[in-house]
Design a protein around this nucleic acid. Structure first.
Lengths: 145, 145
DNA sequence: CTGTGTGCAAACACTTTGCAGGTGT
DNA sequence: ACACCTGCAAAGTGTTTGCACACAG
């Protein structure tokens, strides 16, 4: 029984099941945001497609993971420490590499203040940066020589 | 024959057809981003679902409209003057009102410089702000009294 | 033991593809 | 006249729902 998964499920008052543990571990081990399809590949034939959908939905509702939107669809990533149980913060910066296709959560970057038009109120901000990541840039550069 | 639609189609080297004119007019008249579903409702039974899909795809490829991502899926909005034919700029700020569900393009707001981690290169930035818009705030406030 | 989670089947929604015929230039 | 656009049918993909059984607490 894995400690991280066990702790997380306990914290959020969810039953400890194989599928939930496996998905939590997948997120824990992968530094990138995962789509439903990714999870299906990572946990081949272990759990039903539908169960994965339902598990993801549960995790989003509980605030364990958050949705990441990019051009290819919806992905999910763990909410890090900044998201406590009560005080869930929703401002996320995501980086999508157009070369390798990986999407990562940039936890360290703070979104600057945005001046909205008068009368508009902001609740949540999502920033998606698309470009090339460190390892892909290295590859591209070395191929250039 | 509508001037705006006619001009746009001419500029982008596209044939002038009923469906294309109707969709361009819909975007022109609506200040908000439209999804495929919205267009189907706005142009009821005039054109086939498939034709609307294909028209949208064509417009995106030509740079006439751009995709807007929000939690509910993909929408489209006209690229304004800042996007010229050759020099297409991809940095967009979108505001989604959680009360009325409308998504608008905030053309006037400039995205601040984001400090990416070393070795990362940015090509395109998308910022989605969610909150309540002017007219919804007015409604909410007046109901409070 | 009880309520929740899972698997399976099926329904549903969204989007793409192939093809024949119609239309703009 | 020709290339391109459209409509229809069908397939493909992603997601949700209903129900019976299994399992965690």
């Amino acid at each position: 029984m894995n400690t991280f998964a066990h702790q997380t499920l306990k914290t959020y008052d969810l039953r400890h099941t194989g599928c939930r543990e496996a998905i939590l571990m997948a997120f824990y081990e992968q530094p990138t945001a995962l789509s439903h399809g990714h999870l299906e590949e990572l946990l081949p034939n272990l759990y039903d497609r539908v169960t994965i959908y339902r598990t993801l939905k549960t995790f989003v509702e509980k605030g364990i993971v958050h949705k990441v939107l990019d051009e290819d669809g919806i992905r999910y990533a763990l909410c890090k420490t900044a998201c406590s149980h009560q005080h869930h913060h929703h401002d996320h910066v995501h980086f999508k590499c157009v070369a390798c296709g990986q999407t990562t959560c940039l936890e360290t970057i703070v979104i600057p203040q945005i001046a909205l038009p008068n009368g508009y109120k902001s609740q949540e901000i999502n920033l998606l940066v698309q470009g090339t990541c460190l390892s892909c840039n290295v590859t591209i550069d070395s191929n250039t020589y």
